[in-house]
Design a protein around this nucleic acid. Structure first.
Lengths: 147, 147
DNA sequence: TTTCATGTAACTAACAATGTTACATAACAG
DNA sequence: CTGTTATGTAACATTGTTAGTTACATGAAA
């Protein structure tokens, strides 16, 4: 199944932006992500609509983070992206008449809802600041490894 | 995203088979599932390879359950289907060089692995007998509702 | 007024799940 | 042994989704 990688993409982009002083253009972000500037605009547009980032046109334009890194959680980003489906496995038929299928659906839905709750809970516990700190650790380790 | 509904399908099929005395043909199961007998054979084939069901050709042939309903868990069925990916959300890039992306991947993978563990745990706690019992409850409720 | 940037529509490509067609193979009834 | 009923499976079509691409409009600033 083709997985939705937009959450991963925006996190990657946001952390690169956090490393920069000024705004970062879609072109630069596209290079970082290994994709196309239009895809960046399309995806980052969701975050703009949610007020998490801002974009400016023209000279010295680009994308800027509009919020404190410590106040943005993965859950907020997931919501900003429209809360896409988490699971690649699902019921064959929602709302079936067949009682057998209703039992099957109920069992699977119970398990999936529980897992989704856990995921959302974890997402709400992780902020951009946490990721930035993890990156700083990796960066320091890389430097000491090379010396 | 297009979800994999094979687990839901085989559960539905197995419960219908459990309701019958003799073997059930792919044609009958296809009607129950609202699909094609070839799809049934293809999907049930995984369960046959895992020894959970058996199939016989010719007259009075069809599919039969080869195990006790109480001993078959959703997890076994998931494994028999080849342990397909559970999540529709994923990293943009596995094994990235970029340290930023490594931090992002690590955070997301941690959350997803935790959720997957929970799901597998729940799957291993639910047997076909549990689903059959739930179906019996629904069936009884339906009958009393109609009277 | 030129350049640099985003905004967005429309189209293409890639891929995976499911559906379909066609035919081979096996079991059994008569 | 032959016809019928069933599975086994390869090959192809359909559908749906994500991501990539092209093209052009719009706005801001040098």
């Amino acid at each position: 199944m083709k997985r939705d990688s937009r959450l991963s993409s925006v996190l990657h982009a946001l952390l690169h932006m956090a490393e920069q002083d000024g705004p970062v253009t879609s072109d630069i972000l596209a290079q970082c992500l290994g994709t196309n500037p239009v895809v960046v605009r399309r995806t980052m547009g969701y975050l703009r609509d949610a007020g998490i980032v801002g974009s400016d046109r023209g000279h010295a334009g680009g994308w800027r983070i509009h919020a404190d890194l410590g106040s943005v959680t993965l859950r907020q980003l997931h919501e900003a992206l429209g809360e896409p489906a988490m699971f690649a496995i699902g019921n064959r038929n929602e709302m079936p008449e067949c009682l057998v299928e209703q039992s099957v659906n109920a069992a699977l839905e119970g398990a999936f809802e529980e897992a989704e709750s856990l995921l959302l809970k974890r997402f709400s516990e992780i902020t951009l600041a946490d990721l930035a700190a993890d990156f700083a650790r990796r960066h320091a380790a890389e430097r000491s490894r090379r010396s």
